[in-house]
């Protein structure tokens, strides 16, 4: 199959594979992520879904927003479920009971169902080498159950289980860098994307579908309820996350790291933190150290990534 051209005018003529009428909150980032992922390709897709906002509000009783075969079984096993579907498909094709239609398999999970609860099944499916893609839409907390901290919650964020107050100033720990953990599995393709940079996101999805084996994509997905921001700023915030290098856009293909978008001017992290109420307490006089520390964390992560970027390494030959 030839890769679909990514022109808005052409894409707009196609049919959405994620329907309206779903019950995600107004201004949620997750349906934008799902729609862009499904739009990027014409391959038939079968998806599984971990429990989470996306799952509960896209499939309620007799209503489903999905126009593709979709399965939900539990919170912790989206990757295990789809790996089973993939293995069955492969077997039936081999036995001649099914015609091979080049079906692609995706598991969708939120950060709770990916970083924490679904992590062992994800790690297992990646290790077994199933031909599947795992997509994590990362909104940085358990938003579905009422904003509890997850291991994807950024440093300093106020959630209902790490509330900013007299005892602690929000989440004391740093977030876990899952994209790197997945890369450490030695799988052929790992990428990080943002719905604001739709072209970059869709190119990564297209690239991933042409690669055989396990793939992982981590996509930022703003949540105005949990981030305590406005309903209209999902795209603006995901763009700021990229421009401040809080959420760098890069891919690791067969161990080679490539930064796919470098902001012309790296913005200060406070530009990303300021519009979000969950970081409000960090702007108080006594918490200024937190802003400094959060910026240092982002700088360190970006510096490390720059050093690993293949383009930079090629320019500077190794010494000695």
């Amino acid at each position: 199959m030839t890769t679909k051209p990514l022109k808005l005018k052409e894409l707009a003529k196609g049919e959405d594979r994620f329907a309206h009428g779903h019950r995600m909150c107004a201004g949620c980032g997750a349906p934008i992520v799902v729609k862009q992922v499904l739009m990027a390709t014409d391959y038939p897709i079968i998806a599984s879904n971990a429990t989470g906002c996306l799952e509960v509000s896209s499939c309620i009783q007799q209503f489903t927003a999905w126009k593709i075969p979709w399965i939900h079984s539990a919170f912790e096993n989206a990757a295990a479920t789809i790996s089973g579907v993939e293995a069955m498909y492969k077997s039936l094709v081999k036995q001649g009971k099914l015609e091979d239609k080049q079906v692609k398999f995706i598991a969708f999970g939120g950060d709770g169902g990916t970083y924490d609860i679904g992590f062992q099944s994800l790690s297992g499916a990646m290790e077994r080498g199933h031909d599947m893609m795992y997509i994590c839409y990362d909104n940085g907390a358990y938003m579905n159950t009422g904003i509890q901290r997850s291991s994807a919650t950024p440093f300093g964020a106020d959630t209902t289980t790490c509330p900013a107050g007299d005892v602690i100033p929000g989440k004391p720990q740093q977030r876990k860098d899952l994209t790197r953990i997945m890369a450490a599995h030695g799988i052929p393709y790992v990428a990080q994307a943002s719905p604001a940079h739709w072209m970059d996101l869709m190119k990564k999805v297209q690239k991933a579908f042409e690669i055989k084996g396990p793939k992982f994509m981590n996509i930022i997905s703003p949540c105005n309820r949990g981030w305590r921001s406005r309903t209209d700023d999902a795209i603006m915030l995901s763009r700021l996350a990229v421009d401040t290098c809080y959420w760098p856009l890069y891919e690791i293909e067969n161990g080679v790291t490539k930064i796919t978008y470098k902001p012309k001017e790296k913005k200060a992290l406070i530009d990303f933190l300021k519009p979000q109420g969950r970081f409000k307490h960090m702007f108080a006089k006594e918490n200024e150290w937190m802003l400094k520390q959060a910026q240092e964390q982002v700088d360190a992560q970006w510096e490390r990534l720059l050093k690993e970027d293949s383009a930079v390494r090629e320019e500077k030959p190794a010494e000695g």
Binding site: H20, H22, A26, G27, P31, T231
Partner: peptide, 27 residues
Amino acid sequence: CPDMSVKVTAEGKRAEFNYDYCKGCGI
């Protein structure tokens, strides 16, 4: 649009909003 509520004509031109589904987020 998170709610697939912007209609597009067969020629790929933008048409009116689909107010049946638009949640008014303002993105």
